[in-house]
């Protein structure tokens, strides 16, 4: 379960399958350590679910791995290259993040889905790619609609299309389904699962919901009070009494 060798050596050795890795990460807020992770790595093709009780540091861990926050201590590597303030924009452009809320920008569905491509200066048919992803998330016909007229489920589909259109090397999802009502959620989960399978995208999924873990994850990390308390497959974790105690599930 735990990796025996020094993670830095591994990274230095350049494990080609490791997309994002962190070593010796510590995040402090108001004098309190809210995240302490000696080492973590996400390999190609994995869907890593991060679960744990509220305030466990799940979103903090995701923000660090998605290069949105720099930890007080420790280093983050993207494909063996250390993430620095200098190269962070370039690295962020090789990943995508979807949050709990859609966080769309004022404009149309198409404008939102195209946005990431435009920010990257993609000249080669961003529109066609956006239209394709709008279709895959079942929103064909709504391209020109203003996003503030969409339902919550539709808006979250736009957010997902906006992330997928970028063809990310790793996709970060911070409870992307939790604010939807149960019908919209089930429908979206079904579509999402198919798309994940089809694309084989590497992903990190923060969630509260064990159903999502079972449906989507290949590996599970259990986080509590800022520390990784357990790691395993969805099956092994769901049978682990520790998880039941931590999450109050079972």
């Amino acid at each position: 379960m735990a990796r025996a060798a020094n993670p830095r050596d591994q990274v230095a050795a350049g494990d080609a399958r490791e997309i994002i890795a962190g070593s010796d990460i510590r995040v402090v807020r108001q004098g309190k350590e809210i995240l302490v992770v000696p080492n973590i790595a996400v390999r190609e093709g994995e869907v890593v679910a991060v679960i744990g009780p509220n305030g466990a540091g799940k979103s903090t861990l995701l923000a660090v791995l998605a290069c949105l926050d720099f930890p007080e201590r420790g280093r983050v590597f993207f494909r063996g290259t250390e993430v620095t303030k200098r190269n962070v924009v370039e690295i962020r452009r090789r990943m995508s993040v979807v949050f709990q809320e859609p966080l769309l920008l004022d404009g149309t569905v198409l404008e939102n889905v195209e946005l990431g491509l435009r920010l990257r200066g993609v000249r080669d048919g961003p529109r066609a790619r956006a239209v394709e992803w709008i279709r895959r998330f079942g929103l064909t016909g709504k391209e020109g609609q203003a996003v503030h007229t969409l339902s919550g489920g539709e808006a979250q589909r736009v957010a997902l299309a906006r992330a997928f259109v970028l063809n990310p090397e790793v996709l970060f999802l911070d409870e992307p389904f939790s604010s939807l009502d149960s019908i919209a959620r089930q429908e979206l989960l079904r579509d999402f699962r198919r798309i994940i399978r089809d694309t084989g995208v590497t992903a990190v999924l923060v969630t509260h919901d064990f159903l999502e873990v079972r449906l989507l994850a290949t590996r599970v990390l259990v986080l509590s009070r800022g520390r990784i308390e357990a790691e395993g497959t969805p099956e092994s974790i769901s049978n682990d009494p520790l998880w039941g105690r931590l999450a109050g599930l079972h």
């Binding site: 923000a63 998605a66 949105l68 924009v89 962020r92 966080l103 920010l119």
Partner: peptide, 14 residues
Amino acid sequence: DPKLPRQILALGAS
């Protein structure tokens, strides 16, 4: 939305 700036950064904005 206070989280919007983060989302913009996450989209790869310089």
